[in-house]
Design a protein around this nucleic acid. Sequence first.
DNA 1: AGCACGCCGACT
DNA 2: GTCGGCGTGCTC
Length: 739
Amino acid sequence: MNNPLPFRIRVAVPVPIHEYFDYEVSAQQYADIQAGMRVTVPFGRQTCVAIVIEKVALDVPPSTQFKLKKIIQILDEQPLIDPHILQLLTWSAQYYMYPLGEVIQSALPTRLRQGHHYDCVTTQWQLTPLAHEENTLKQLKRSEKQRLAVEYIQTHPHGVLETELNLHGISTATLKALEKKQLVQQNEVQIDFSRKPVGLAEKQLTANTEQLQALEQIVPTLQNYAGYLLDGITGSGKTEVYLQVMWQVLKQNKQVLVLVPEIGLTPQTIARFRARFDCHIALLHSGLNDTKRLHAWQQAQTGQAGIILGTRSALYTPIPDLGLIILDEEHDLSFKQQEGFRYHARDVALYRGYLAKCPVILGSATPSIDSFALAKQGKLKHIMLNQRAGHARMPKMQILDLKIAPKQHGLSLILIEKIKATLQQGQQVLVFLNRRGYAPVLMCESCAWQANCPRCDAHFTLHTQPYQHLHCHHCGLIQTLPKQCPACQHPTLKPIGLGTVKIEEGLKELFPEHDVLRVDKDSTRHVGSLEKIYAQIHAEKPLILLGTQMLAKGHHFPHVSLVAILDIDAGLLSVDFRAPERTAQLITQVAGRAGRGDYHGEVILQTLRPEHPILHTLLEHGYRTFAEQTLKERETACLPPYRYSILIRSDAKNEQHNLAFLSQNAKLLTDNAQQSVDVWGPIPAPMQRKAGKYHAHMLLLASSRVQLHHYVKHWWQYVRATAPSDIRLSIDVDPQEFG
DNA sequence: AGCACGCCGACT
DNA sequence: GTCGGCGTGCTC
């Protein structure tokens, strides 16, 4: 009597559980199903969308522990997730010790994860017959945007894709407005699966000797995996190298994935690619709505898009003919996800390139110490670009000791003189201060009481715009200003320290005849305001540009010849072992904004710690020497990248509970792992109390990655399972920040 | 994560 | 007497 075993599939369910789940399917379903398809399954008391990981081999007996349920239905005819991506996702889940179901979840566009059908339709727009009548277009005189939109659509009588219009800076809102006026109409069209041959929109620029050498190294390896660190000083033309390698790849009808930092995906970036290549670009960033994200994803998956341009989350986009991955500004922290599934797009990108057998180029003017180390080990090929394009020379840097310098409005008099001289020469000045708001502290003049956030271990920041208020930058709490000191009733509360708004006030007073443009999260909150500011900067007119790190990222300011860095002391004093690296990158990046045109730029650095060794290394020898030294120091101190690390974070309402729980489990780990894993801590987090919770963490270090991951994986499973419910835990493999 | 079951305070 | 607070336990 043979009682055949049931047909089963193994699926990942979008819940925070590390295990896979098995379901019964019919013989027909078993034949039809492939890994990467979506199925709906009964799960507990709900039904949910799950991803098929594998078919269970027919001779494996089912576990008697569970009663096997049947799936409800198969949602896809073809695998939604191709084998490469599925492997990339399972590897990521393993490596970052995060449940696969949730990892897949975060990689899928919302609509697909909700179980919607995979329709390959997208929206296109065309003019209505009404729009062709002569006088109807005259009513658009008052709207520049709508007129431009109509003019563009006019050149495509058969309709033009909404995504393409968006890439041209024509927003969906504008199109909707025109639709209301019955001048344009939308219709749904099938995504065109065929990729058209890619053309060059603009003539290729010629490469200089260094760029040519870089190309000669990269281009012959296009058919295979290779990791490159393109280490080029600001202005050395990394982008030109990217573009020329991209052309070689696109020409072969392959696709290119370009990853940029969160803040780097601006209209200018897109325009640069559009200007060079005549091909479809799929844009993937956090600001997209569900439908647009799905469309971009499908354009990548069907092969319609030649270039896939996006931020961190675009890494898991399916790209059937992937021929090249570029990750620009590879040192940027936004490539590491800072919550939940804490993956590092840089590291996963290297693995993706390996799976897809294509090169991966990591580019930066200030490479991360980790990438430097990989280059030293030969795991990345180090390509250096040292010449600035055109006539530009590196700016000269100078340190100003704030302890002895006489100052006014937080600016030393020497700096004020230099600003004056620069403006008089008709050039622009960039003032960098990494602190928004008016002042970081509000203090009572009489008793030294300070306005602190009741929920965090932090000062309130005083804001004066759009109205006076206290704002906690850590938990977001907003309060009104007390009329007098709550402790001693003294009427005068004094702002202490400098924020961008206060400096703006000072600069306007000192240079009333010049424009002062402030660029920070507060001044650029409204859409389009940043574009307006950039337009002013590109007009060749003397002005002062003032802002936070937003200014340090990517943008070119051709008319800036003086850069003032007001306060980076916090970065010099931090206990985080990566703080020097980040500070050095920030200084170098900000300094790189100067002297890009034909002027010889100058950089002034105001500090209370003029003797700090980081500053001297940077000034006298530059970033690369700093990186070399830092590497040596890390080696001596047995820190990453010479050891591998995992950070365990926990928070709870009760401080003692939290620390006791971590200590107890730390002992468990050291008992088990013997000498191979080193535990630092647990210690209270740098900001212990945040939003009313107590935060603590401990760092696990080992010289062998395999051993570290082995021990921690088992330990973590156990800790998670046994943790009391008042303690929230998270794991961070290869942590970058200790906040 | 959901969603249930389950045991203790203020209400028609 | 109930309605409902959210503590803990499970999901093939």
